[in-house]
Write a protein that binds this DNA or RNA. Structure first.
Lengths: 195, 195
DNA sequence: TGCAAAACATACCAACTAGTATTTTATGTC
DNA sequence: GACATAAAATACTAGTTGGTATGTTTTGCA
């Protein structure tokens, strides 16, 4: 990787780091560059403005980051519903980069930016669709091999699962990790009802 | 009500209005007062600083506002689970003051402020607890009269329901009202599994 | 009716914001 | 090694922010 590409990448990664803890709008460009050996000239050489940087952050940091935990993890056990349970449990309790206090980077950005910036909304919708589509496909395959009842709507279930995850990320911000533990118990009950 | 109390109230209500659409941190004091016949002197006479106003807004506008739709509505049909379904449906699809684009005022504020301001976190936790406690009580009564299985944990279900609601408010910001309709179908299935 | 306190109005400030204009340095290519 | 361009550094600006200092008006009440 060229030095220029490395500069661009460090900006995006530091931005992601700060945005996760402070929100996008509360993270200033000065915030980002002051924690790196990067000046404002470099920042605006690589990005036309702050929003272009934010969109690049979604596509080049957040999208690749989520794949292993939200998509590739599906298929790691013999049981499809257990896979899904483990995916959510992994995200909530086992992922060392995520903190109940700060929630989920994607959920946070949707909450903050979708209503006020149409380009962010679209980019974040792509992110969420990638997850939902993977879940839907996983559920359909489970229906074929008899692990999930054929009477259920895979697409709807996929959306319901992501909604539940988003929601407990919100509740977790006020009640902490204990909310995750309680949620997972009810989530398990829900998943079992799909067999 | 005294004129001074009225001034205070209009500030809080206009703040709520703007915060709902723009978020708390993106709503400036100038924003609020410029849309009213109120000056900065009046604002800082009634509130020590912006955050004290925000906390007053939670306790004096948001908390009373939520009660009819989130608590008193429980008990309006003969069936406890139908009550809960209608409550969520009412919030998502029938409430004219809420918009899928902007989500739910309480969920938004939790998402934004809980991680960065401990006082906001506590005030919002009280808000959420009031809802969860009402749901829990409602579920316990339903268990006694045989409308909900006694094997279920009412407190956990109450939290799970609020998490689901929070989550679909998030998803709704990117997919719009159609997400609400889909969610409600799955939510109904979940509720029925509790009988 | 007088007067103190409450309620508000006005003018201001220092810190911070995204973004620009201009200059300097690094890098690859012939 | 010359030269063009990419990459980055520096200094600046206009606008916005929460908050303050100080002055004026309104209100309740002795």
């Amino acid at each position: 990787m060229s030095k220029a590409a490395a500069t661009r990448e460090t900006i995006l990664k530091k931005a992601f780091d700060l945005v996760y803890r402070q929100s996008y709008q509360a993270t200033s460009i000065d915030d980002i560059i002051s924690q790196l050996q990067v000046t404002k000239g470099a920042f605006f050489y690589h990005f036309r403005n702050k929003d272009m940087m934010g969109l690049a952050m979604i596509r080049e940091v957040m999208a690749p980051n989520m794949e292993p935990y939200m998509i590739h993890v599906l298929g790691s056990t013999p049981d499809a519903l257990e896979d899904i349970y483990q995916m959510v449990k992994g995200l909530l309790l086992l992922n060392p980069t995520l903190d109940s206090r700060y929630g989920c980077p994607a959920v946070n950005l949707i909450e903050e930016m979708a209503p006020v910036n149409e380009e962010f909304r679209k980019a974040l919708m792509q992110l969420m669709l990638k997850w939902q589509d993977a879940l839907e496909k996983h559920l359909r395959e489970a229906q074929i091999i008899g692990q999930v009842g054929k009477e259920h709507d895979a697409k709807q279930i996929a959306m319901y699962i992501t909604a539940g995850y988003s929601g407990i990320r919100n509740i977790g911000k006020i009640f902490g990790n204990q909310a995750y533990v309680n949620y997972l118990q009810q989530f398990k009950i829900y998943l079992e009802s799909l067999r």
